[in-house]
Simulated scan of single mutants.
Amino acid sequence: MAVPEQQREEVVSRPVDLAEAVELLTAARQVVLLAHINPDADALGSALALGLALHRRGAHVQVSFGAPERPAESLRDLDVAGLVVPAHRVVHVPELLVVLDTGSVDRLGPLADRAAAAGTTLVIDHHVSNSGFGTHYYVDPRAEATAVMVLHLLDAMGASVDLPTARCLYAGLVTDTRNFRAASPDTHAMAARLLVAGVDAEAVTRPLLDTHPFAWLSMLSAVLATATLEVDEARGLGLVHALVRRDLVDGGRQEEVESVIDVLRTTAEAEVAVVLKQVGECRWTVSLRSKGRIDVAAAASALGGGGHRAAAGFTVDGDAPAILDRLRRALADAPLLG
């Protein structure tokens, strides 16, 4: 049931622990789970894993995201129960709205209004920059992926982690830990548990990280031709950046465009890699990666975005040279990490 308007204005977002989050999840009979726009494997995999558990408990479940209309091709096989619905079919006033892997309400895009309308909104996230929106939020910046938190929730709920659930969680782990290079011993142990449940690591990982159509090569060539190295920027540790023009964004699959940053970040002379992707006439989404010495989440937050210390982003209007100037200043003020 939706919260009456006069009461909703008085609701204050508050943090909850694992037990309280489980209580909210298990009490609801109708649940909408939302990932951020352009969901990656951690966002959508986490939503689907938790959605499967709630569906099996008898709840009416929808999983969705604001854009694009369908999940990335590499993620579609994760939805074995048909829980994903397009944004226009999402219930307008959910009993319980669960927002996963999303640092701020604007990252829900056209579905942001559901957070205000829902009877209860529970945010589950591991981004240090999470703004603590919703009526309740369960945020753990120590978790390498939201999938880590969801596995803890499933265990606390007594839910089965069978193969379909394990595949969703493994997809989130492998992508957000950069193929387990940034994973703790506990997260490696979680991965081993998912493998025991039957996950084929190669079959899950290949489409996410190692598969591109031939057209990706020409797109990548055009983007890398714009790459610029500035060795004195990013607090003297080096900055490399490139532009993805709108025609390349519109003409390529989402996962191909998002993969450019992983190529750029291999530049030995640069601590920070940045890709500007043109998504409108004067609108850009900007991805930032660091090798661990500069907090790029702080730089992204200064420009209206957020993320992790080593991986962050923001969306901004303007022209590319002006955006880069603002970004250089933000990186100059970003904290150095131990």
Rank of each mutant, 00 (worst) to 15 (best):
H60T: 08
S259I: 02
E73W: 03
L276C: 04
D210L: 13
L237T: 10
L239W: 11
D162L: 07
P213V: 02
D250R: 13
R328K: 00
V199D: 09
A300T: 15
T102L: 05
R29F: 03
H308M: 09
R246V: 02
T120A: 10
A35G: 14
P94Y: 03
T187E: 09
G252L: 12
A299P: 05
E256V: 10
S129Q: 03
D17L: 07
D317T: 04
D333P: 11
G338D: 12
H92R: 00
M149Q: 07
G313Q: 11
H60D: 12
L33S: 09
P71V: 03
V161G: 06
E95N: 11
R70W: 03
P141S: 05
L336P: 02
V257Q: 03
V84C: 06
L264K: 09
A334V: 08
E23S: 15
R8W: 13
V11C: 15
H127R: 02
F180G: 05
I261Y: 08
R329Q: 04
S218R: 14
V139M: 10
P335K: 12
H136A: 13
F214H: 09
G198R: 10
E69S: 02
H308E: 13
Y170A: 14
T165H: 01
A225F: 02
E10Y: 13
A270L: 10
V199E: 03
V80N: 07
V128P: 12
A334Y: 15
T211G: 06
L34V: 07
M219V: 06
L194N: 06
G109M: 00
L34R: 02
P39F: 10
P39S: 04
V32N: 00
I294M: 11
A332C: 00
A47Y: 05
L303E: 08
D210K: 10
D262C: 09
L169W: 10
R57K: 14
G172V: 11
L337G: 11
R289Y: 01
L327W: 04
G313E: 12
R289P: 03
V150P: 12
P94R: 00
T26V: 11
A310V: 00
H92E: 05
T266L: 14
H212Q: 08
S184W: 03
R293E: 12
A43W: 10
R309I: 00
V93E: 08
V123W: 08
A189V: 08
L151S: 11
I37W: 12
A215D: 15
G251E: 01
A72W: 09
A112G: 04
P15W: 11
C168M: 11
G305D: 15
R246C: 02
A183N: 06
V275Q: 01
V244I: 05
I261R: 05
A166C: 15
G313W: 08
D186W: 13
A189G: 04
R245D: 00
L100D: 06
D106W: 02
P164E: 01
A189T: 13
T165C: 12
D325Q: 08
D77F: 04
T285F: 01
A53Q: 09
A227G: 06
A191E: 00
R283W: 01
A72R: 12
D325T: 06
A330I: 05
T205F: 09
A143G: 10
V316P: 13
D106C: 05
V16H: 04
V161P: 07
N179H: 15
S218F: 14
P110T: 01
Y170G: 05
C168G: 10
G251H: 10
A234T: 12
P86Y: 11
L243V: 04
L50I: 09
V223N: 01
